[in-house]
Design a protein around this nucleic acid. Structure first.
Length: 422
DNA sequence: TCTGGGGTCCTAGGACCC
DNA sequence: TCTGGGGTCCTAGGACCC
């Protein structure tokens, strides 16, 4: 049976800022902003903060005095908290559809195909349930394609009169599509928006009437797919089995610039360990290790940024093995006389640990120990990350990131659990 | 003083082969 | 004036997403 497909996108409003509010009711009416790693950029803000003119992705220092003058609550990113809250939201959503695709930390697509009840009402129930069970506000967009569901959720957020839920399956869509800038369509970024604008295409309503051939010749194939989806032809399915990662990156900007090789070695060691841990969490093995380092981009100092890769003799997820290769690469990359601001380790050529192709000529030291890694991961999961670490990652870490405004890990550490007095 | 981190996919172009 | 034609594979870079 060819049933008309229906998709819902459920999107948490200002997710990180909302997470901070759940456990701190004093923030209810206050403007809230959340900063990126290193307290660098603004990555989330509440509606009140938006009204002050603060905007996303701007570096914090540009709005610091405005924030201080207006009693804005400022937070460093607390990913431990956000990841746990995300998991709670996704668990609730799983009870509303047999097909759920967790698309990002704060959004999921749900299949509502075949639902007999009012879709708008169902969206409202989802919204109320998530609020009741997690304390987080969400918006729900409902439409015949994923791209239109994203657009519907965008409208649900923009227009408070629709109660956080927007159903685009019922009416003539062109009225609503006029309200959406072409650059806000999912899949159309800044560059293509500029290109489309120069052709007189400014809104989603303009876009759906665009010439197919022109779109195909000026945008990659994904552009044409977006066009079809915006016209209501579904080209994308719910993808509820996450595919294994093709690359795993661990990188950070430093809290302060560093010049010595020794501190770079410490940082690269700790990123290699983190990346290997993530890899083991995916049951993967890496075939290739890449290291990159970068001098401060925002100073007048001479610029330097470089990366090098090498293949491992045998695919591995062993921290000492990966660290050893990463540090050898770093030695070749390092040049004296620069103020380094960022470094990172990337693991790629990833295969499943189930089908390891062994190298006959490898000694045990080069192979590492899966049991040891397993134990290290277990200890760090139970007692907090960083309980066990390799000495090459250093202990003083003058380069480690700034997190001046970190909130407690309310939901994942006993000693930081909320204390409520009545 | 202060400018994030982690991903995916597509395409063009070069190297190489027959 | 003239400079094969296809095919594959790899990589770098650019675009997008959150």
């Amino acid at each position: 049976m060819n049933m008309k497909r229906i998709f819902a996108l459920v999107d948490c409003n200002n997710f990180y800022a909302s997470c901070e509010r759940v456990f701190n009711p004093a923030l209810k009416k206050r403007p809230v902003i959340v900063l990126s790693n290193n307290d660098g950029c603004i990555v989330a803000l509440s509606a009140e903060a938006k009204e002050l003119g603060i905007h996303l992705t701007a570096p914090y220092f540009k709005f610091k005095s405005l924030a201080e003058r207006n009693n804005v609550a400022v937070f460093s990113s607390n990913y431990t908290l956000y990841a746990d809250m995300s998991h709670r939201v996704m668990t609730v959503l799983a009870s509303f559809s047999p097909e759920v695709e967790v698309y990002s930390i704060d959004e999921s697509f749900l299949s509502l195909t075949g639902m007999k009840c009012s879709l708008y009402d169902y969206g409202c129930v989802i919204r109320e349930t998530v609020m009741k069970w997690t304390g987080l506000p969400v918006s729900v967009g409902i439409a015949p394609t994923k791209t239109l569901a994203k657009a519907a959720a965008h409208l649900a957020k923009k227009d408070p009169s629709c109660g956080g839920v927007f159903d685009m399956t019922m009416n003539d869509r062109s009225v609503y599509l006029k309200k959406i800038n072409v650059g806000n369509i999912w899949g159309i970024g800044k560059k293509y928006a500029e290109k489309l604008n120069s052709r007189g295409i400014y809104t989603a309503a303009d876009f759906v009437t665009a010439d197919d051939k022109w779109v195909r010749s000026h945008m990659p194939i994904a552009g044409l797919r977006t066009l079809m989806e915006m016209r209501g032809h579904s080209c994308m399915n719910i993808d509820d089995t996450p595919s294994p990662k093709k690359a795993i990156v661990s990188s950070r900007s430093f809290g302060q610039s560093i010049e010595s090789l020794e501190f770079l070695r410490q940082s690269v060691s700790s990123y290699a360990a983190r990346a290997a841990e993530k890899l083991r969490g995916e049951n993967g093995l890496a075939g290739v290790v890449t290291v990159f380092i970068m001098a401060d981009r925002f100073r007048d100092d001479p610029r330097y940024g470089a990366s090098l890769s090498c293949e491992l003799p045998e695919a591995s997820s062993d921290t000492p093995v990966i660290t050893r290769y990463a540090l050898a690469l770093l030695n070749r990359l390092y040049k004296e006389g620069y103020r380094y601001k960022k470094a990172g380790v990337m693991l790629s050529g990833i295969s499943s640990s189930r089908d390891l192709q062994m190298n006959l000529f490898l000694g045990n030291r080069e192979r590492g120990s899966a049991e040891l890694m397993n134990t290290v991961d277990k200890v760090n999961r139970s007692y907090g990350s960083g309980t066990l670490f390799y000495a090459s990652a250093g202990t003083e870490k003058p380069w480690s990131m700034r997190r001046e405004f970190l909130s407690p890990s309310y939901t994942t550490r006993w000693e930081e659990i909320l204390d409520v007095r009545i």
